[in-house]
Design a protein around this nucleic acid. Structure first.
Lengths: 218, 218
DNA sequence: TAATAAATTTAGACTAATCTAAAAATTTAT
DNA sequence: ATAAATTTTTAGATTAGTCTAAATTTATTA
């Protein structure tokens, strides 16, 4: 069995490889995990010796099939617990991340599968991120960044890239929750901000940075 | 914040002091925690220096008010999670202890209070043990050991002393779950076993060891 | 392409939690 | 009340995970 620390490294490697589409560098991992490069270097050798990663000195790491399986299972647990916290315990979407970080380390396959069933086998978490099934298969959803839409186009908000509290609370303030219908009314070249029509009624303007963090389904 | 290990020591001290009505000895703790007396001795000094226990060398430990508060909060979490696992996820009462041992270390007061509310503020866990409220107050229930009942007396099964899987599975096999009505039909002096009438219908005989682990409400 | 900068690894040290073995204190029993 | 047994503590070692500082490798740029 792995320690929580080892599990967190696997998750970080998974996340970084996914994002950058290449081996995760020591530095990228140290930044993600808010630790030193020296600690990461140490750990990468341990993970490799356990057959969880492919590691070549100075070349970064990728997950082995075994490592990938564990990382995926962690993501599954994390997202299912987030659904539980929001749907059953009435937490808001900006409050659940830290708690899920703890809950994802609870060791019990039976528990997560029963939780899944109890929640009605949800396919997406409160931030719109897909929840892998017991075999580690993700439901894929075609989605585009809001910034890619042309004037006049519209779509439903189905996910967010960031999940920091500040960002999510900002979205709440602007009336932007998952499911709302958004139509691009205007694009300002000056700062790449965008004017939107929310649910066919309210008009708001959001920055380019926000746009890049919103996923729509056309 | 305390480590899971430190929290487990506090729980063990609580449990032992409760049971024996005196300071918990190093040996008793090492037995309870399945570790060495040397480790315990070390830890007791650490807990004391943190103001969680009153400790005098060779004299055992008791919890300070601060330590007692933490231990009680852990018990509250443990028992609430057990209720969740049984009521919501359909685990059986013999399956939940190990899982609750993990879940009780999740750090969030808000979480446990919301869980409590979600579960309808239960007062007892699946084994009949009282769940302290947010202030650490236990609901007290007058209960007697089955072995104390005289022939002809009866009562409802409201709790069990042991919570090992083997014991609980034995009870299931005998049809003994919380709530059943038990009447003492006969006591055998030879081995102190007892013949019971279960729910006014079935007759069973159980050993003295089992009797001592069953709590009834007359 | 050589020198400079950046990234990575190694070396050595620290803390928490554990262990075994030995020493010390306490309790029990003769 | 003294010897024997038991309990408890101390001493010293080990492992996981971390750190800083120094050394090494790779990447960048003049």
């Amino acid at each position: 069995m792995l320690s929580s620390t080892e599990e967190n490294y696997l998750k970080a490697i998974y996340k970084i490889s996914e994002r950058d589409n290449k081996a995760a560098s020591t530095n990228a991992i140290s930044k993600e995990m808010k630790t030193t490069a020296a600690s990461v270097s140490d750990m990468l050798q341990r993970l490799s010796s356990k057959g969880l990663t492919h590691y070549e000195k100075y070349k970064g790491v990728t997950l082995t099939e075994k490592g990938n399986k564990i990382a995926t299972a962690l993501i599954r647990k994390h997202r299912l617990w987030e659904v539980f916290l929001v749907e059953k315990l009435d937490f808001t979407w900006d409050e659940v991340h830290e708690l899920a970080e703890q809950l994802e380390h609870i060791q019990s396959i039976e528990l997560v599968n029963r939780l899944d069933k109890f929640l009605g086998n949800p396919k997406f978490d409160p931030h719109g991120d897909p929840i892998p099934n017991a075999d580690g298969i993700f439901t894929h959803r075609r989605q585009v960044e809001l910034s890619e839409l042309e004037i006049g186009e519209s779509g439903a908000l189905v996910g967010v890239q960031e999940d920091s509290s500040t960002f999510l609370q900002y979205l709440d303030k602007m009336g932007l929750k998952l499911g709302v219908e958004l139509k691009v009314l205007e694009k300002f070249e000056f700062d790449s901000s965008v004017k939107l029509l929310v649910n066919h009624t309210e008009q708001i303007t959001i920055s380019n940075k926000v746009c890049k963090n919103l996923f729509l389904k056309k």
